[in-house]
Amino acid sequence: MLEEKLSITNQNIEPQYIISLNKFIFLSVITFGLYSIWWFYKAWRFFQEKENTDIMPAMRTIFGIFFLIRLFSKIIDFAKAMNYQKNYSPNLLFIGYLLTILLSYLPEPYGLISISGFGWFIKPFKALNYAKLNDSGYEVILQDRFNTRQIFLIVVGSIWWLLILASIAIILSQQNEYIAY
């Protein structure tokens, strides 16, 4: 009876595309952390479909700071149900993420340290991938290549990075000119 409910419920879940941790890190860095926000949305979307609830993933992403602990908790609970052996504290991950994001207020170029905020998503990212891969109720597709949207993000992010690095180089060269005089 329970298996029938799971299969009926899970029919409404879109295929789950899973990328490697290295791709997640690369996409997060190249997009200045914006890919992490996309992952946040996709995780909420997954739980909306999985639990057949009326939550609004977009709103939970926009107001993510208020829902991050809850998402991390849902992920670890789901992963533990799939015999995930590792653990993490949703509260500590949230605090770490919040503190890292606050580093963006440092003067340039030190504010770029805040891009590392995606690092606090790594444990939940691994746990969610594990759970999806070990739950037979979902169609899981391992994405070994970048899709068109990801390539677009890489191109735009690369241009953005080049502009940022060029502006830093210009600022530093101007500072050196002032020092020389």
Rank of each mutant, 00 (worst) to 15 (best):
I164K: 12
P124F: 08
M1V: 09
S73V: 01
L103G: 00
E3N: 04
F94V: 04
P57S: 06
S73Q: 12
N52S: 09
R70Q: 05
W38H: 10
K86R: 08
L92M: 09
N129T: 12
Q174W: 12
S167D: 08
R145L: 07
K86D: 08
G137V: 15
Y35E: 02
K42G: 01
G157N: 11
F47N: 10
L93V: 09
L34W: 14
I62V: 14
I37R: 01
G64I: 14
G157Y: 02
E49D: 14
F146Q: 13
I141F: 06
I171C: 06
P15I: 12
S116T: 14
S116L: 14
E4Q: 13
R145M: 05
I95Q: 01
Y97W: 14
F125P: 02
F63M: 11
I164W: 10
F66Q: 03
L153P: 03
K80A: 00
P109T: 00
I113G: 02
S36W: 00
V140P: 05
I69K: 01
W38R: 11
Y105W: 00
Q85S: 07
K123M: 09
F72S: 02
I151W: 13
R145K: 13
R60G: 00
K132A: 02
N83H: 11
I101T: 12
K50T: 01
I164Y: 12
I154M: 15
I13V: 15
Q175I: 12
Q175L: 11
Y110C: 00
P107G: 05
M56P: 00
L165S: 08
F46K: 06
